[in-house]
Amino acid sequence: MLGYVIQRLLQSVLVMLAMSALVFVGVHAIGNPIDVLISPDATQDIRAEAIRRYGLDLPLWQQYLAFLGRLLRGDFGTSFVFGMPVLELILSRLPATLELALAAVLAGTLIGVPLGIYAGYRPDGILARGIMAVSVLGFSVPTFWVGLILILTFAVNLGWLPAGDRGPVMEVFGVGWSFLTLEGLSFMLLPALNLSLFKLAMMIRLSRAGTREIMLTDTVKFARAAGLSDLTILRRHVLRLIAIPIVTVFGLELGSTLAFAVVTETIFNWPGVGKLIIDSITALDRPVMVAYLVLVAFLFVTINLVVDLSYALLDPRLRRGGAAA
C-alpha cells in the first residue's frame, strides 16, 4: 500500500509542475494587463515604470521561475486590481463557492443514487420511466436557462425566494456561512438547486446502469437463492458494488463544481470564486487568473489522488498491483 501511495504522489507532483507551466504561459499570452491598468493617455515613462513594477519587463521564463519560487513559499502574488494578496482574496471567496458546491453535489448524490437504483431495479415501471425522463431533462437543459427560469418563477412571479446575492451569514472561526441561518438558506436554495440538476441526472444514470448490470450477475442470483430480501440485496450487494464509480463521479463533480460554478454564480450574483475569476478575466488580472487555474489543477489532482486511494481501499487488487509495480 505504501508503494502505491508514493507512486501516486510522485505522479501528482509531475502533473502539477506541467500544469503550472501551461497555465502560466497560456495566461500570459491572452493580453497585456498594462493596457487595462494604465490610462491610454499615460506617458511612456509611466507605462515603463508600471511594467517594471509588476515585473512584466522580465523574459517569460524568468517570470515563471520567480512565480515558482513564490509558489513554494505559498505566495501567489498580489492582485493588480484589488491590491491584496491573491491567496487571501481567493480564500475570502472560497467559502461561498464551497458551501454551494457541497450542497449541490450532496443533494444530487443523496437523491440521485436511490432514484437510479430504483429505476434499475424496476426498469419497466411507470415511476422508473418518470425518473429517467427527469434525468434526460437534467442533461439537456442549459444551466443558465434553468437559472433564469428559477429566478422568474420563484423570485419574480411567486416572490418566495430572493433572486440573488448571498444574504446574511453566520461566522464560525472567522468564516461566514450562509447555510447556518434560515435567511441565508433561502438565498442559497435557488443557486444550489440550479447547480444540482446536472449532478442529479448524472447520478441517476450512473446508478441505474450499475444496478441493471449487477442484478443480472450470479452474486444476486445466489443471494436470492439464499432467501435474502430484495431490500437487503440492494443495500448489501448492489450499493456496495456500484460504490467505486459513484465515489469517482462524486469526487470529480465536486471538483468541477468548485472550479466551474461560474455561470450559476454570475446569474445569481453569488460572491464566490467563479464570480471573482470572471471579474479578473475582464480586468486581465494575471495573478488572480494564474493562481485560480493553478489551484483548480491542484484541486483536481488532489481529488484524483484521493479517489485512487479510495479505490485501493475498496478493491484490494489495486493495492497488490501498486505494490508489485
Rank of each mutant, 00 (worst) to 15 (best):
A29V: 09
I46R: 01
G83K: 07
L89A: 10
R53T: 05
I46C: 00
A104L: 05
G55E: 02
L102M: 15
E49Q: 08
M84F: 06
I51W: 00
P59H: 07
L60K: 03
Q44V: 05
Y64L: 02
R73V: 08
G31L: 07
A101V: 12
A48T: 10
I117L: 03
D75A: 07
D45G: 03
Y64E: 04
G116S: 07
L89P: 14
F80C: 10
I51D: 00
A48P: 03
D75G: 06
M84E: 15
A103F: 12
L65E: 01
Q63E: 07
L65H: 01
L56I: 01
L68V: 08
D75W: 04
V105L: 11
A107V: 13
Q63C: 02
G108C: 08
G108M: 10
R52A: 01
G74W: 12
A50W: 09
L60I: 13
E49A: 08
P85Q: 13
L56S: 01
I38A: 04
A103R: 11
G108L: 04
R70W: 07
P114G: 08
I34H: 01
I46W: 00
E88C: 12
D75S: 06
E49S: 04
F82K: 14
A48R: 05
A101K: 11
G112V: 09
P59T: 05
W61G: 00
